[in-house]
Nucleic acid binder design. Structure first.
Lengths: 188, 188
DNA sequence: ACGGATTCGGAATCCGATTCCGCTTAGTCT
DNA sequence: AGACTAAGCGGAATCGGATTCCGAATCCGT
């Protein structure tokens, strides 16, 4: 069988990949997903061919941008949200971040959803996010802030809801977060 | 100024419009939104031009299909959900319907969302849906099932969330409905 | 049954993603 | 340093699918 030899990419290739990703992030955030591959290429100061070398498909490019956002959310969750002493606040912080990110990047998120939102969160980032959820959850269960039967899947679901609501302008997602968190409280 | 003379459309035109809409509904439900205009035309036994005569844009066609679904939900809400004696069950019934419809028509709903979900529900159907929400809400407020400060906007938001969750396979939307409804209960 | 308005059909056009390939380079070997 | 070569690059050409156009066909009022 053929062993794939994982050669390190040329330095300029890596630089270009970065430029493209950066330009795409910028453009998507600004003009939504009506951006064309050619625009991305131009903004990155690169030919279309190069864009396609690094991101074989529009969809892949979008996913790459999306992953950046998830990574960003992950970092924020670790640094800001986990620090909150109150469990409910920790969750609120986390969900709010998701809301804000999706609210800003409306353009991408339509595509993000198609790319990453359809099923489970994927890859390392996804796993890490779930782990954080688990952690907060554990805290909440033991200090009685949350119902005992709450699962990470529930948090994931609520996160998805927050994303959807803030992406489309369906309503005030802060309020939604409150309602959802109330729904997780122990029953009287 | 030119008075638009609202002449009744030719009978065959109306018939064709119906065929196209029907074919589109069918195809979207079956093959998702990867369906092409030409396919719709063929399935409807009609030329592309005719499809475009009635639905000037792919997007418009999708919206038309979507509106049918909303109408369907409206009918169900009136006939089934309002009848439930228990307020919570009435709401649950309503949300569950939304969940089921979106779960089935995954194909369309991606587009539905783009078409109708982005802002408020539109037109008569939208207004009627909100009216029903208002009605259930009123009941719930007076019998103490719901917090006094719940607004229709909240219901709309939750509806959107249910739709998003069931469309993508983010989780068990029945469970989500439970959580959300718990969140609307009066605080202890 | 006739004539003009309306609708139909589907080939032609337009637009944007994706592919292809000859030309350039970074990195390596001497 | 100079030569060599595979990895990368640019952007014209291709392809797929939505949308437009217009002569032919069909209604409907008279």
């Amino acid at each position: 069988m053929s062993n794939a030899a994982p050669r390190r990419p040329r330095t300029d290739a890596e630089r270009n990949r970065g430029r493209v990703l950066h330009a795409a992030t910028e453009l998507f955030a600004q003009h939504g997903d009506q951006v064309q591959m050619a625009d991305v290429a131009k903004a990155a100061g690169v030919g279309v061919g190069t864009v396609y070398r690094h991101f074989p498909t529009r969809q892949v490019l979008i996913e790459a941008v999306a992953e950046q956002r998830f990574t960003e959310i992950l970092r924020y969750a670790r640094e800001e949200c986990l620090a909150r002493p109150d469990t409910r606040q920790a969750l609120a912080c986390f969900f709010a971040r998701i809301g804000r990110v999706h609210e800003e990047g409306r353009g991408v998120s339509g595509a993000i959803e198609a790319a990453l939102g359809d099923t489970e969160p994927r890859g390392q980032v996804g796993a890490d996010l779930l782990a954080i959820g688990e952690e907060i959850l554990e805290r909440g269960r033991s200090d009685g802030t949350l119902r005992a039967d709450v699962k990470v899947a529930d948090l994931y679901m609520i996160a998805g809801a927050v994303a959807a609501i803030s992406r489309n302008v369906v309503g005030d997602w802060h309020r939604f977060i409150d309602i959802a968190l109330d729904g997780l409280q122990p029953r009287p």
